[in-house]
C-alpha cells in the first residue's frame, strides 16, 4: 500500500504523458497534434517536479526557522526529520527540477507557436490541415509552388 502511495504520482504522470503522445500520434489534424504535443511536454514537466518533492517541504525561498511561517511548517514534522532533510532547520523541496522545467515550459510554448504557424501556412497552401488530405493533394496536384 505504501509502495503504491509512493509511486501513484509517477503512474498517473506516465498516463498523462502517454495521453499526450497518443493524441499526437493518432491525430491527423495538425492543430490536434500540436495540442497533444503540448500536453506531452507539460506532463514531462510534472514528472520532473515529482522527482524534486520532499515530504513536508516548502518552496525553495529562504525561510527563517524562527519566523512564524517557519514554526508553522516545522510544527507537523519531527525534529529528527527536520534535522535530516532540512537546511538550517527548514525543509525545502528540491529547486533544481523547478529551474529545469521553467526552461522546458518556455521551450514548449516556443514549439507550439512555431508549429501552429506552420499549420496556418499549410492551411493557406493546401486548404486543409488534415494530414491525409494533404498527402492526397501532393499526389494528385502537380506544381511545387506555394
Amino acid at each position: 500500500m505504501s509502495f503504491l502511495l509512493g509511486h501513484f504520482n509517477y503512474l498517473i504522470v506516465v498516463f498523462l504523458m502517454m495521453g499526450g503522445l497518443w493524441i499526437t500520434f493518432s491525430s491527423r489534424n495538425y492543430i490536434k497534434r500540436m495540442i497533444g504535443l503540448a500536453l506531452f511536454q507539460t506532463s514531462v514537466g510534472l514528472f520532473y517536479i515529482s522527482l524534486g518533492k520532499v515530504a513536508g517541504g516548502t518552496a525553495a525561498i529562504v525561510l527563517d526557522k524562527t519566523s512564524k511561517a517557519g514554526e508553522a511548517l516545522n510544527a507537523h514534522l519531527s525534529p529528527d526529520y527536520v534535522a535530516r532533510a532540512g537546511v538550517d532547520g527548514v525543509v525545502y523541496s528540491n529547486p533544481l527540477p523547478h529551474v529545469l522545467i521553467l526552461t522546458a515550459i518556455v521551450v514548449g510554448v516556443a514549439t507550439l507557436a512555431v508549429g501552429l504557424a506552420i499549420a496556418v501556412r499549410v492551411r493557406e497552401a493546401y486548404g486543409t490541415v488534415e494530414a491525409g488530405e494533404i498527402a492526397e493533394l501532393d499526389r494528385t496536384e502537380a506544381g511545387p509552388r506555394a
Binding site: V122, A125, R145
Partner: peptide, 11 residues
C-alpha cells in the same frame, strides 16, 4: 521556401 511541400515536411 517556394515549394509548398516544404510546409508539411517542416511540420
Amino acid at each position: 521556401g517556394v515549394d509548398r511541400r516544404a510546409l508539411p515536411a517542416a511540420f
